[in-house]
């Protein structure tokens, strides 16, 4: 396996930790086209033929101040459909605020966000809900709804008759492998099951999206066990690749981000410090600079990809 690795010159400053981008040169990612070191960003993004060249979300010169503190400064991003875009960064880097500004939960200090070339603020709320759904980090319900009743709430913006609605709910429950718990009371579920119920609800909401559905996942794996974490991210990946979803996910696990995202956006103190394909955007240098932690990199013998510890 090691022979596949084309370990070029190590960076002078990080002798012990080769840059990830170099390790990835030979990375035979099963899904991604192999990355080459000098590929420009747009090329690095293109992994599928379905993908339109046009971005779905455009963030221009976005700054957000909360009180006097600048939480986000001059963010410029174009988010593509058919891709999983991961937002990474240490606590307080502005990931959640960026997600919130995309959801119109915080006021923009300056800049503009457009969605399908239309300013976000000009979207009709009900119309927007059909195209854009958000999986919250925690969702508590005050009263003991059943699992399928929670998923049913995702039907709110849709125009379906009762039978169509019920079928859709069943289908989404199946997709997150929760059909067996359809009539269980939501508060009695484990954290992971709750998260999957919410995911089913959010996917239900996007069932009638007029164009590319947009899905925001805010730390979707935080409450899940190992297998579930991978299952949820696999689902996100397949939604992006097969159904052209535009997925933005906030993650803490860099390995998961590298494995499931098509593009990584690394934030530090409200600024984008690195943006690109996995292993390209996350070099050992970047990790050390942003997280103040010197990573150990190991090559996974199975996938030939580097693992970050």
């Amino acid at each position: 396996m090691m022979r596949n690795l084309e370990l070029k010159s190590m960076l002078k400053t990080h002798k012990s930790a080769p840059a990830l981008s170099e390790l990835a040169l030979a990375g035979a990612d099963t899904n991604n086209t192999p990355l080459t070191q000098h590929k420009s960003k747009p090329d690095a993004f293109s992994h599928s033929a379905v993908q339109a060249s046009q971005s779905v979300i455009n963030i221009r010169d976005l700054s957000v101040h909360i009180g006097k503190k600048a939480v986000l400064t001059d963010i410029n991003l174009e988010i593509m459909p058919g891709q999983v875009t991961a937002l990474l960064g240490p606590n307080g880097a502005g990931k959640s605020t960026l997600l919130k500004s995309l959801c119109q939960e915080v006021a923009l200090t300056s800049g503009e966000i457009t969605l399908q070339n239309k300013p976000l603020a000009k979207w009709d709320r009900a119309e927007l809900a059909k195209s854009l759904a958000v999986l919250p980090q925690h969702a508590s319900l005050t009263f003991p709804f059943n699992v399928h009743e929670v998923v049913q709430m995702g039907l709110y913006p849709l125009t379906l008759n009762q039978q169509q609605g019920a079928d859709l709910v069943d289908k989404q429950l199946e997709q997150v492998a929760l059909s067996a718990l359809k009539y269980r009371s939501y508060p009695t579920l484990s954290g992971g099951e709750k998260q999957r119920v919410q995911l089913a609800r959010v996917l239900t909401q996007l069932a009638q999206a007029p164009s590319q559905p947009i899905l925001f996942l805010d730390e979707p794996t935080s409450a899940l066990d190992l297998a579930q974490q991978h299952r949820v991210l696999e689902l996100a990946q397949s939604l992006a690749r097969e159904q052209n979803y535009c997925v933005i996910v906030v993650l803490h696990d860099l390995n998961q981000a590298c494995r499931y995202a098509d593009r990584l956006v690394v934030l530090e103190q409200g600024e984008v410090v690195s943006d690109g394909a996995p292993y390209e955007a996350l070099s050992a240098e970047v990790i050390e600079k942003v997280w103040h932690y010197k990573p150990t990199l190991v090559i996974d013998p199975k996938s030939n990809l580097p693992l970050i510890f």
Partner: peptide, 20 residues
């Protein structure tokens, strides 16, 4: 009634569902 159900998810979540 339906909107009230959605509101029980939380205000932000209800907004994301298109509720005013």
């Amino acid at each position: 009634a339906k909107a009230l159900n959605a509101l029980l998810l939380g205000e932000a979540e209800a907004r994301h569902l298109g509720l005013d």
